[in-house]
Amino acid sequence: MHPALSVIIFTTVSGMGYGLFIWLTANILLGTPLADDDVVIGSVMAFILVATGLVSSTVHLGHPERAWRAFSQWRTSWLSREGIMSIFCFGPMVFIAGQYYFDLGFENFVNLVAVLGLISSVLTIYTTSMIYASLKAIPAWHNNWVILGYQIYALSSGGVAYIVVAGWQHHMIVVYLLIAALIVKIATWINIDRHRGQYTRESALGLTDFGKATPFEPAHSQKNYLQREMGYELAPGRRAIMRWFALGCGFIIPALLLYIGLPAASLILLICFVGMMAERWLFFAEAEHVVRLYYDKDTV
């Protein structure tokens, strides 16, 4: 799939935002002593990350002014469900930031809203992952690793953001999460590589009993929308470099720096963010759509 920058930014940034908010609400519920200002900054930062992601995701729409229509088909569409959930999540973020900043006198509701915020953040990440995992035509996405991955990458990158906001009191948990995320990522790649080639051109054509099919005259002289959108070919050499880069910056280096306690949490967050962008770039660039069987691929 063509790795479009707007969607890469959207999923990386908003994942980090929800992850940060999960960390924040979980700590409120666990009674971790948190400075009021830190809670405010954390909620506002989560809000900004999620909002940036949403705005970025509307950039690639043909009709951004009609985006409100995307809330209507929640009964079948994961994209619609994601839209609704992401708007819902703003509620708890605004409430918690407002309560801690202005001291509105709703202390009794903080825990309830924190529970709501935590659950709705997890659900929003789930709806995002299901947009991809529900697409049978893209085998690299159509599996449970994608669902697990989206949750754990949000928690690990959001955990690093949490350290920037609220300090180092739980930094070893973030280290463990980064290691878990690393393992999930490698398992995802093993799964993708193992399942490459399960669909054939002959089956796509419905002609499995006539021998091996190869394209003869192209259907059109120039690339069309399908090839531009879904025909991205990632060279194996480039894949290897990007995979190492994503692992290194997204998980390994942040985990090491946190472990040794480098007193530069913002730098660690930046490295992690760049790594997650690379991870998300690969998520698209590596995913082969079965429509390529009608064009350049013998198997997908």
């Binding site: 799939m1 690639h60 729409l61 043909g62 009709h63 951004p64 009609r66 985006a67 229509r69 995307a70 994209l79 947009i131 697409l135 049978k136 035509a137 893209i138 796509a204 929308y225 399908l226 959108e229 879904m230 759509h289 079965v290 429509v291």
Partner: peptide, 11 residues
């Protein structure tokens, strides 16, 4: 709205 998701879903 031109989100293109349908074209991803069509095999």
């Amino acid at each position: 709205i031109g989100c293109k998701l349908c074209s991803w879903a069509c095999p």
